[in-house]
């Protein structure tokens, strides 16, 4: 998978002030985002390894697809 080993992980973060509960993120990244009873996202909080390309791609789709621009991806360094 490329020259450089992908180290560290990422978390998908939601800005709850901007979020209006459109629910697009849960459709685009179903492995990372669940929707609570009122339509707001509940996102997996523990970092996902960057090597998980499918998860990273779905997170990028969710960021791009959010009608309120309420999502962002934050990198976290490898804890070890």
């Amino acid at each position: 998978m490329g020259m450089r080993r992908r180290v560290g992980g990422f978390v998908l973060l939601v800005n709850p002030i901007l979020c209006d509960g459109f629910g697009h993120c849960a459709e685009l990244a179903p492995d990372l985002v669940h929707v609570d009873e009122w339509g707001y996202p509940v996102i997996v909080t523990e970092p996902v390894p960057l090597a998980n390309l499918a998860a990273l791609e779905s997170a990028r789709y969710a960021v791009r697809g959010c009608p309120r621009q309420a999502l962002r991806i934050e990198r976290v360094s490898d804890p070890h």
Binding site: G23, H34, V35, G39
Partner: peptide
């Protein structure tokens, strides 16, 4: 209204 409705993908799918 804000968050006017869960999607069908909501894990709960329970009417409030």
């Amino acid at each position: 209204t804000r968050a006017a409705g869960r999607t069908a993908l909501s894990p709960l799918g329970v009417e409030p």
